[in-house]
Design a protein around this nucleic acid. Sequence first.
RNA 1: GCGCGAUUAGCUCAGUUGGUAGAGCAGCUCCUUUACACGGAGAAGGCCGGGAGUUCAAGUCUCUCAUCGCGCACCA
Length: 720
Amino acid sequence: MSEQNQIPEIFLKPYDPSEHEKNIYKMWEDSGYFSPENLPGERTETFSIVMPPPNANASLHAGHALFVTVEDIMIRFQRMKGRKTVWFPGSDHAGFETQAVYEKHLQKQKRSRFDMTNEELRSEIWDFVQENKSLMEDQVRSLGASCDWTRELFTLDDRVIKIVHDTFKQLEEDELLYRGKRTVNWCPKHQTSFSNLEIEHEQRTSKFYYFQYGPFVIGTSRPETKFGDKYVVMHPDDERYAEYEHGQKIDLEWIHGPITATVIKDEAGDPEMGSGVMTITPWHSHIDFDIAKRHNLDFEQIIDWRGKLMSPAGEFEGMNITDAREAIVKKLDEKGLLVKVDDTYEHSVPCCYKCNKEIEPQIREQWFVKTKPLAEKAVAAVDDGNITFVTERDERVFRHWMEHIEDWPIARQIAWGIPIPAKVCTECGHGMVDLDDSITECTTCGGSVAQDPDTFDTWFSSGQWPLAVTDFPDGSDFTEFYPTSVMETGKDIIFFWVARMIMLGIYRTGQVPFEKVYLHGMVRDKKGVKMSKSKGNVIAPSEIQERFGTDALRMGLMVNNAPGSDMNLDPDKVNAYKKFANKIWNITRFVLDSTVNHDYTTAPEYSAVDQVLNSELEAVVKEITDLMEKDRFDLASEVVYHFVWDTFASKILEDSKVYINSEGGGTAQHARQRLLIAHLVTSLKILHPFMPFVTETIWQELPEEMKDQEILMVASWPSK
RNA sequence: GCGCGAUUAGCUCAGUUGGUAGAGCAGCUCCUUUACACGGAGAAGGCCGGGAGUUCAAGUCUCUCAUCGCGCACCA
């Protein structure tokens, strides 16, 4: 036996992922095949995915590992199928998220962002993000992502800002943008407003107070807002209060002495609730705001932006909300106005999703996007089949939200984001979009103007991400790859991101941004508990990769993980696929060992048994291909696993030993060798999207005669 | 309040159009036979949450009840 006919030495010891993964990735990246223009062969049909850009502020978590796995499987499959594939990577400045992370850093240094100018803060965060960005990119690489790094984009790159600014301007021209004094969800800690999506509702039991308010008894859970309450509201049909007229003035004794209250009859008053009578605080309540608008009532701010009581509170001015509450109740009690206290009142309280502190509704002049016209077109796109959802459930969820959508406040009072290109009149408050910094006086009143200090909601710019990465409107990628093929992301951001991309994509281009939506579920720990730092059950992908290898992690995340359903990441399961990687390794060793002298030039003469095995192989390939086409990677990966282990290794390989070991060779042995080679090559190919590293490592060691391409990543998907 | 999902082996979960119940882990009995002990052979384990219905046939479809979970909205 000559030297070059022996099997490669690396197969003499078990597969060690850490020895090969980095080199293999480098080979792929150096090959240029991540870029569509470099792919071998004639490719006409395109397949493109826009990567959900990971936050550039932290390490990857298990959710990232899942999306990289799913998208990489899609891309590798389509690449092998002969499509012109491109996967656009990116990184996200993640506005408020990143700023919140950075504020914690500042806190540790006993500093505060409120002592800094926006420019200083922005510059520090920029440096912080640049560091973490490359860390994040390396982790994406380590997961095997075959994305095109030459096309990488950061969400604060000029190209993105240009598109976002143009959209902003166009919305103004189309009268889909307005600046209005409206109730916003204000976080007193973070000093910014949020959209409804960014707040959480927490169930709490608190005290519900009943106070004598002239002839009425009013109920409230928030006595501290009641100083300015001079309107008393009831349902027009409430018989108990039929004697009172709408607009009637009533003199009564209140917190700071006698006041005159006005009766308002409004259908928002719920006769079933409390006494059926309430007073309203239009500045600090969505509902009250609406009532006040309907009846043209006065607005008065009671609580300041920091959550402290203001001058209407009299002697309570400057107190924070919780302290003031008890004090006010005490005073009303002393005045004999406290009727009773119900301390079993259950209600949900809006909280900041980040700090969990209570959200204080405030009126603030803000930019809003009118979303209804945009939403209608988005729903129409789904109706027309221009966008399909992989699961029906997601489509229903999407439709439901779209049909109940509200206008979108797009300004945030934070530094880390794209500044809003607008001027605001210092006298009348009028806002004007100003892309080229040319407006010097108010277009309404002629007053002086100032730069709007706010930045865009991250999701406003993220919503235009597919446009940015494809370089809308004139880029060649836009022409070639827009609409992209699939949007794959977490189901938790279907409203935040997916819905906004659809709306804004259609708005700017007239076309949907992607044809299909695949939403994955959440990754939880092995017991099914949501991972969180405070619970200490976070599983870092990098740790799993080190222990079991990236391929094993990918399989562990993929097998039996149905689209859209949550999954539990169990290290034991991942370990099973580590063993599987080694199994393939040893299958290869056996096949190479059994075919060292194989004559590739002679056509095999297959026996009847061989032919059955070959057709079974074809059938499995077909089954897997069909599942892949239907995005059922969870099932496809399981089928591959069982085919390779239970059929190929346990049966075919074992049965082959008698042929392989027989003396003298002959046509039966030759045919059997060819059959093993075909099975090996096909197995590596159909496994490649799921386990790219081990399959490519093996591929690089195979004799040239077995391969149709030097690199497995661009080899052709098996077919008849 | 509106909507959605789950309930299958001891544990964590699959089961694509209805056609003899599957995986990983744990556990049991053998096997250190030259591809692999990161292995092999074999066995065990499930009235597929309860009830009703459609069907020749239901884990799979319909209804209902129970328990758990999630989303959205509202809350004086």
